[in-house]
């Protein structure tokens, strides 16, 4: 409880305090009280869909980048994790080895993940070298807005898919084998087995995976920051990076706005976490 107070409650209180103050000073007592101004600055927009019409256009760029990222990354992640789990659950050769291989990236530090893929994607990187060997023109992966976005999605899927595949694999293994044998005797086609048996029985695990992936995707930062630095321009700048740069890294650092933005993001995460908790309880009751 002491640790929780020291490392969660106190910082949260300080964060809330910062979000109501203005100026560039880092020392809290030296900062002036501005009330809800920071939230007002972040939220006031003529048209929320067009960041250029917002008072803090960069915040809304980051918001919409994050929304796009979350939508694509979670969908791809869940599909890939599902496929991986199904393959790892089938009777393949060296199954234990492949299970370890797919889980391995989860053990890597996000910074290492970012560096590995930067080395692959950079202009003189491995991917372009391979393309060149096949006679193709090199592509400027990380300096192209679209490619950089897809690269950030792809790398983050690669880094996390093992974890979610593991949850789904555990769910698949919990389905009794004789149910599949009964289905075989019932002349069920493989597609129908998946749709009518595997998917419904895996659904509770799948829901948890989706919500967990959503939460993690909203928080995306380190591996993408190392990979693209948010660029080119602001095309892969996501919310956490915006908060970090606004609070600490930019020339005109603004801890008040950064704190306000982190509280807004925290609110979204609290909602998602409550949904996840609710789903877990619902699953345990079943």
């Amino acid at each position: 409880m002491l640790v929780f107070t020291l490392f969660v409650i106190v910082p949260l209180g300080i964060n809330i305090a910062y979000s109501t103050t203005g100026g560039t000073d880092l020392f809290l007592p030296a900062r002036s009280y501005v009330g809800g101004d920071n939230f007002g600055r972040l939220l006031s927009c003529a048209d929320h869909l067009t960041p250029a019409t917002c008072r803090d256009d960069l915040f809304w760029v980051a918001v919409w980048n994050t929304v796009r990222f979350v939508l694509l990354q979670v969908v791809v992640l869940v599909i890939v994790a599902m496929a991986t789990a199904l393959i790892l659950n089938s009777k393949i050769r060296a199954r234990g080895f492949w299970r370890a291989v797919f889980f391995f990236p989860v053990l890597l530090s996000p910074v290492v993940v970012g560096l590995i893929w930067k080395w692959i994607f950079q202009r003189q990187g491995l991917l372009n070298y391979v393309l060149f060997q096949f006679g193709a023109d090199p592509v400027n992966w990380l300096n192209d807005r679209a490619w950089a976005f897809f690269a950030s999605v792809g790398v983050s899927v690669w880094a996390h898919v093992g974890f979610y595949a593991l949850i789904l694999l555990a769910g698949l293994q919990a389905i009794p084998r004789d149910i599949y044998e009964a289905a075989e005797l019932d002349r069920t086609s493989p597609a129908r087995v998946f749709r009518r048996i595997t998917l419904p029985l895996l659904w509770p695990n799948l829901l948890v995976v989706i919500v967990l992936a959503l939460i993690r995707a909203v928080q995306v930062f380190d591996e993408v920051y190392v990979l693209t630095g948010g660029g080119p321009g602001t095309s892969t700048m996501y919310l956490t990076q915006y908060i970090y740069e606004t609070g600490f890294a930019s020339v005109l650092r603004n801890p008040g706005v950064a704190s306000a933005a982190s509280l807004l993001m925290g609110g979204v995460l609290v909602v998602l976490t409550l949904v996840q908790l609710g789903l877990t309880r619902w699953r345990d009751r079943k």
Binding site: P176, I179, A182, T188, S189, R192, L201
Partner: peptide, 24 residues
């Protein structure tokens, strides 16, 4: 076959359990 564990489809009603193979 009648299995030792019964191997009924847990997410289906009794009716659907009986009908599943016939529908296939």
């Amino acid at each position: 076959m009648v299995f030792q564990s019964y191997a009924l489809y847990p997410h289906m009603t009794v009716r659907d359990n009986l009908a599943f193979g016939l529908q296939n």
